[in-house]
Computed example of a mutant assay.
Amino acid sequence: MTPVKWGVLGASKFALNYMAPAIHAAEGAEFAALATSSADKAAPFQAFCSNLRVHLSYDDLLADPEIDAIYIPLPNHMHVDWTIKALEAGKHVLCEKPIAMQEAEFDQLIAARDKSGLLAAEAYMILHHPQWHLTRDLVQQGMIGKLTHVSGKFSFDNRKDTGNIRNRPETGGGGLRDIGVYVFGSARFVTGLEANDISARVRYENRVDVVADVQGRFGDALYTAYVSTRMHPYQEMVFHGEKGVIRLTAPFNARVFGEARVELHTVGHTGGGTVSTQRFPADDHYKLQVEAFGRAVREGGDYPVPLEFSRGTQAMIDKVFEVASEV
């Protein structure tokens, strides 16, 4: 198998801790190059990838003829421009979420992807984790009966990190773009539906949303969710049906927040409640994402999270901002 040779555009902390090691570990992938103007920032990457080439500018990395694919972990407001530049340079692109700041920007991304004939996708890693495919199958197969309610919760507290790009409006910060994509996109994936009747309340600090409380419907099912960058760390997704409940205990940061478990709560033959649990102690959704991307590049098949899916999640984020009342 000829490996896909990857370059990482920028020495971000997230790339260092998660995606670069995942590329290095993934089957059929080679972490080959990094673009950063700082030798100090390159050193931790070279510590686990000794043959890494370091380019001193982003453009130099895009011009590297040895590189097949680019991973982009830059601040949100830079995603569209650098995704298009990488495609025009002949590179496949996996860009961190949100890949765009507004739904309308997907017109440019999809046009650039189609013109290049290359793969471009948002790094929406959770849908590469088997817990989400199991959950979708359980719901779609009617294991909890008719779906009546979906709830999502995702929070952490970074109020002290005032320089963080998530706390800066000029870099596209805020909780909805950073983690709202998870409580929104995962519900869309499992139900196969788009949300409607959306309402929301949002609290801002320094022109950045820090708490968002969202309601809506997915088909006949009610939907409630909150995301916050000012609350104790927590995450959970629950799909409640007429005949059972599915609960995901670490839906978004599996192995980091805790062990990923899918609990199926149903009524047993004797009338008492029963819980069957499937655990996923070792699955690394970042590594699985890289491997899925590589297969699509080499074999030309469909990628599980195309731009069209990501566009739908961004449309939901845009709608929340549009209808939200400020609190």
Rank of each mutant, 00 (worst) to 15 (best):
P44H: 11
K85N: 07
W82V: 05
Q46D: 07
K97Q: 10
D318F: 03
I198E: 03
I246Q: 03
D197A: 12
T224W: 10
F293T: 06
T274W: 11
D302Y: 02
M125Q: 10
E66K: 01
R159V: 06
V80R: 12
M231T: 04
R113G: 02
P304I: 08
T191E: 06
T229E: 06
G272P: 05
T135M: 10
K85M: 08
V238P: 00
G241H: 02
N17K: 10
L222A: 13
W82S: 05
G271H: 11
Y124K: 00
R203T: 14
F218S: 04
H128G: 01
D302N: 06
L34R: 08
F321K: 01
A225Q: 09
F189C: 01
R207D: 14
R217W: 05
K5S: 12
D284R: 01
V208W: 10
K160A: 15
M237D: 09
L74S: 04
G219S: 07
S12P: 00
L87Q: 04
E326F: 03
D64T: 07
V202E: 14
L127A: 07
E205P: 00
S12H: 04
I72R: 00
A292C: 01
R279D: 11
S199L: 09
K85F: 06
G173N: 06
A104G: 06
H133I: 13
S37N: 13
A112G: 02
V327F: 12
E263G: 00
E105P: 04
G10P: 01
V323Y: 04
V190D: 04
N76F: 14
D283Y: 06
T191Q: 09
D59W: 04
V262L: 11
R295Q: 12
H269P: 13
G28T: 04
R188F: 13
L193Y: 02
F48I: 12
D81R: 03
A292W: 03
P75R: 03
T162I: 14
L74D: 03
P3T: 12
G145T: 13
F48R: 07
H129C: 04
D213Y: 07
D197T: 06
E326L: 08
E170Y: 01
R207S: 12
F257Q: 11
E88T: 02
D137T: 10
G312A: 05
A26I: 07
D220C: 00
D209F: 07
G294K: 03
Y58G: 13
D68R: 01
V210M: 14
H128D: 00
I198Y: 06
T266W: 11
L248H: 03
P21H: 06
R255W: 14
I99K: 05
K153T: 13
G300K: 09
A47W: 08
A195T: 03
A39K: 07
V320G: 02
P233F: 11
E88D: 15
M78T: 08
N196V: 08
V211H: 14
I317K: 05
Y303W: 11
D302T: 12
G172V: 09
V275W: 14
G301R: 04
A111P: 02
T277D: 05
